[in-house]
């Protein structure tokens, strides 16, 4: 067992963990922070993406012991006082999620992109999200949402009235 101290979404936790414990399992099974899901075992799907000391990582491919002394931000730590971030709002308003399983990772990956590149093009967004798989949306509305969250024009989806 190894002693670790990790700050997750603003709360500091100290725990004894097996060295092999994955950060994703630490978050989910030990801390009960189940907002971060796991979708694969090869670090391809990106559903488990979290922010570790200011950069995204796939929490299924990081050991909890490697996060010792670090700050972790998950999708559960984004909204402040119930106020969604621009990305969360954009994902909602542009219908960028269906089943929602990839959404935490998508939002974290998009957040990382916008930190480095506040006004990305559609192409850059698609490249930046290459490590996050979605099976529902075909990605188009995710791209629209990231464009919208970065304050760029995107064709409006919401509140179209037909008939």
């Amino acid at each position: 067992m190894t002693h670790i101290k990790v700050n997750v979404d603003g709360t500091t936790y100290e725990d004894e963990v097996e060295p092999r414990l994955l950060l994703a399992h630490y978050l989910r099974d030990r801390l009960g922070l189940t907002g971060t899901p796991i979708g694969c075992d090869t670090s391809n799907c990106g559903a488990c993406t979290v922010d570790l000391d200011g950069a995204t990582v796939k929490s299924c491919s990081v050991l909890a012991v490697q996060a010792d002394g670090s700050e972790v931000t998950t999708v559960q730590g984004l909204a402040k006082d119930g106020e969604w971030t621009a990305l969360q709002r954009a994902f909602h308003e542009r219908h960028a999620l269906q089943c929602g399983y990839c959404t935490p990772g998508m939002i974290m990956a998009a957040r990382d992109l916008l930190r480095e590149n506040p006004q990305p093009t559609s192409y850059e967004i698609r490249q930046a999200l290459e490590g996050n798989l979605c099976r529902c949306t075909g990605y188009q509305n995710i791209v629209r949402a990231v464009l919208a969250a970065s304050g760029q024009e995107a064709p409006a989806v919401a509140e179209e009235v037909t008939a």
Binding site: G32, P37, Q76, H92, G100, E160
Partner: peptide
């Protein structure tokens, strides 16, 4: 009077899903 059908209502489902307040089966303890 159809005020709703035909309209792109934003989804009621989203609020939990974009904030991580989900209830996937593996979450259950």
């Amino acid at each position: 009077v159809e005020r709703e059908v035909g309209r792109s209502r934003l989804r009621k489902e989203d609020a939990r899903l974009i904030t991580g307040q989900t209830n996937w089966t593996d979450n259950i303890q």
